[in-house]
């Protein structure tokens, strides 16, 4: 019998973005990369650092700032006052390739790997290209510390009836089955503690991706595995091809 759990989230996070509650949580989560950037900056300017170390520290600074900027970009896109996003037919494979390409330098710098499961004949989906990118980048950023060179983080596309699912599989600590509900509760209670067991998983980014999915009339969710979790987004298959 499979030990995998399944949880699907739909609808209802608008209230989060109508109040300043989330900004406190976001400020708290952005503190971590900023602390790291400050320490790296201090290390770069130290006197007894070799040229090689300085190059490494500079690269770490850049990658850490890019990661923080990705979180900020997701939040920015989410908090814009809009009820929906323009949708278009999107090739999920090309989006996944872009995501892997963007995240690869950071994973490599941490000695980790991120891969895309090969698949032929992937149907077009209905999505907002930028929002889908943000969702998958957030899943990838959150998974960074929960993979290894031996167990790479993997993006996979699968068909589920009239839906296409894009999942990001990691090997981190277990996630609760009511993950998003708990996150909303924490934000509502102003409980700024990080996600239990997974301090490197940004709760704010998960709330943001839930909102982005809603704006695309799609849904995000998690699957529990014995040795990790898959965070996924379900998208409608585009009917464009059937008209040809």
């Amino acid at each position: 019998m499979s030990a995998e759990g399944y949880h699907h989230i739909e609808g209802g996070s608008n209230w989060l973005f109508d109040s300043p509650i989330l900004s406190a949580q976001a400020a708290s989560e952005l503190t971590s990369p900023l602390v790291l950037m400050r320490q790296l900056g201090l290390a770069v300017s130290a006197e007894n650092v070799s040229d090689e170390e300085r190059r490494l520290l500079g690269k770490q600074l850049t990658l850490t700032s890019e990661r923080a900027l990705r979180l900020a970009a997701s939040l920015s896109m989410t908090t814009a006052n809009q009820q929906s996003l323009p949708l278009e037919p999107v090739n999920p494979m090309s989006i996944c390739q872009e995501v892997v390409h963007e995240l690869m330098p950071m994973f490599t710098a941490y000695g980790k790997r991120i891969t895309l499961k090969p698949r032929s004949r992937v149907p077009l989906t209905v999505a907002n290209r930028k929002a889908l990118m943000r969702i998958l980048l957030a899943f990838g950023d959150n998974a960074l510390h929960y993979g290894s060179a031996e167990h790479p983080i993997q993006l996979a596309i699968s068909g589920h009836g009239d839906k296409v699912r894009i999942g990001v599989r990691d090997y981190g600590p277990a996630v609760p089955t009511d993950l998003w509900k708990r996150l909303e509760g924490r934000v509502q209670r102003r409980a700024l503690a990080p996600l239990s067991n997974r301090p490197h998983t940004s709760g704010v980014s998960l709330i943001a991706v839930q909102r982005l999915a809603e704006l695309m009339d799609s849904a995000v969710g998690t699957i529990r595995h014995r040795d990790g979790a898959t965070f996924y987004v379900d998208l409608r298959v585009s009917g464009q091809m059937s008209l040809l």
Binding site: S32, Q39, L40, A43, T64, H145, H200
Partner: peptide
């Protein structure tokens, strides 16, 4: 320290 680069930073200072 679960953030390896921060751990590296502390380690450099202590080893020095």
């Amino acid at each position: 320290e679960s953030e390896p680069w921060l751990g590296d930073h502390y380690q450099r200072q202590l080893e020095a």
